Simulated scan of single mutants.
Amino acid sequence: MRLRMIGLYKYRYLYLLLLPGILWYLVYRYFPMYGVIIAFKDYSFVKGIWGSPWVGLKHFHTIFQSPDFYQIIRNTLLINVYNLLFVFTSSIVLALLLNELKMMALKRLIQTVVYFPHFLSWVIFGGLFIQLLGPKEGIVNQIIQLFGGDPIYFMTKPEYFRSVITFSSVLKEAGWGAIIYLAALAGIDQEQYEAATIDGANRWHKLLYITLPGIRNTIILMLILRVGYMLDVSFEQIYIMYNPAVYEVADVLSTYVYRMGLQNAQLSMTTAVGLFQSIVGFVLIYTTNLIARKTSDISLW
């Protein structure tokens, strides 16, 4: 105990730097958690949280008995699976491609171009995307008509909507997601590549036996974190890009919570949905971490 106190005092200024971050999490992440009890009450603005009557698991029974809820879960999972397959992997592929570039000026230019969309809000980026896919003025449909095809109403066709959402996510976030993999690639010992060159290895061999194993731990950690968000789809992206014509494939948990909670004032039910979402996310991240710990030497804990 004495040694610990000496260590705390010795590094007191470093711990002091942690204080703003700790306070932020306490104020915005932990203190509001008492509001979870709304899920077990018939919440009333007039009576307040503590004055509202307890109803137990009533709201959970309601959402689980609703056929719309399972459609929303399906939409959320499918969009996240697509994001995992394409957005997550595209960040890795982009980082590998950028790592192979030897012309630093060209590499910086490409990095700037692919990073830039991340800093645009979905209001701007989604609006641009909708304009590009417009049936009349959109450049995509103009190209289709140039080759003799008929214009496609991408944003109102359920069969195209998930692909549009996934593709827009790749364009917006792949560059930003590649940053952490580029950092991991920079940490690989260059002498391994030199030794491989002497042994006659080509670029493909170096990629398979040096580069990918070198960033394997980073990929596993990012995958564990990503799986924890399997029931969380960007509200801004869906809200900006969907419309009533594609509700059957586009309505996800975040838009459902917005519609039921803010527009219909069913706060207790939407709190129950949010609690369910958090529990499932925790179970997924715990399970993925457990599998990673048993099959590799890397895990979150």
Rank of each mutant, 00 (worst) to 15 (best):
I6R: 11
P20V: 01
W24C: 09
V46E: 12
W50R: 11
G51K: 05
W54I: 00
K58C: 09
K58Q: 09
H61W: 11
F64C: 09
S66Q: 12
I72K: 06
L85M: 09
F86Y: 06
F88E: 07
I92Y: 00
M104V: 14
M104I: 14
A105H: 13
R108D: 08
V114M: 03
Y115D: 05
F116W: 10
F116T: 03
F119E: 08
S121R: 06
G127H: 06
L128T: 08
L132Y: 13
I139K: 15
N141W: 10
G149C: 05
M155H: 12
M155K: 09
T156L: 13
Y160I: 15
F161T: 04
K172W: 01
I179E: 14
A186Q: 03
Q190N: 09
Q192A: 02
I198C: 00
N202H: 01
R203N: 00
W204S: 01
L207G: 00
Y209W: 02
T211V: 08
I219G: 02
L221Y: 05
G228H: 02
M230G: 04
V233N: 07
S234E: 13
I238H: 06
Y242T: 05
V249L: 10
A250P: 04
V252H: 05
L253E: 05
L253C: 06
Y258C: 04
G261S: 06
L267A: 08
M269A: 09
T271K: 01
V273P: 00
I285L: 06
Y286F: 14
T288F: 10
T288N: 12
N289A: 05
N289T: 02
K294L: 12
D297N: 15
S299A: 11
W301R: 15
